[in-house]
């Protein structure tokens, strides 16, 4: 019986996904003024709503407030009410200051955990999108390029 705990954790460790695979980030440009960010959250993992942050470059590009859907509310003893996401998360992001045909780099910071009882530090994922010309329809979905991690200082 004493072995059940550590063996279970050993199995969990073997199967634990790196954060960029647990929380797969992709995005597309719906039109020249709207980006659509997506997180494909693996089964058994979840992301914190208030830890999601987006940014775009070049400097001239301005990102509006992300249209974050409501998450599942749970009460955290230390942080109070927190909201979490599971499954597929789709976030619309208004963008301005860049013209159709230009490319932008979209960065997403996220932080989440696995149900087996581990959490990942904040992770930054990036991808490059071309803003479609008017009337040409949404751009193709682009997967995040190899990840860069960030840490609290």
């Amino acid at each position: 019986m004493l072995c059940a705990g550590p063996l279970a954790v050993l199995a969990a460790d073997v199967n634990l996904l790196p954060p960029e695979q647990a929380f797969r980030f992709s995005a597309r440009a719906l039109d020249a003024r709207t980006l659509e960010a997506r997180f494909a959250i693996a089964d058994g993992y979840y992301l914190y709503r208030d830890k999601l942050k987006f940014a775009v470059t070049p400097e001239a590009a301005i990102l509006g407030s992300p249209d974050l859907p409501a998450g599942k509310v749970k009460t955290d003893e230390f942080f109070g009410k927190v909201e979490t996401y599971r499954g597929t998360l789709v976030v619309k992001l208004p963008v301005s200051g860049v013209a159709a045909g230009q490319t932008v780099v979209l960065a997403a910071d996220s932080q989440g955990c696995a149900d087996v009882g581990v959490c990942y530090p904040p992770t930054r994922q990036k991808l490059t999108l071309a803003l479609p010309a008017p009337g040409s329809g949404p751009g193709t979905l682009v997967d995040a390029t190899p990840p860069k991690k960030t840490w609290f200082k």
């Binding site: 004493l2 705990g5 550590p6 954790v9 969990a12 460790d13 634990l16 087996v116 009882g117 581990v118």
Partner: peptide, 13 residues
Amino acid sequence: TQMGPLNSVKLDL
């Protein structure tokens, strides 16, 4: 070494 929470009985042992 332990990845994830340490079972308290195990820790004690």
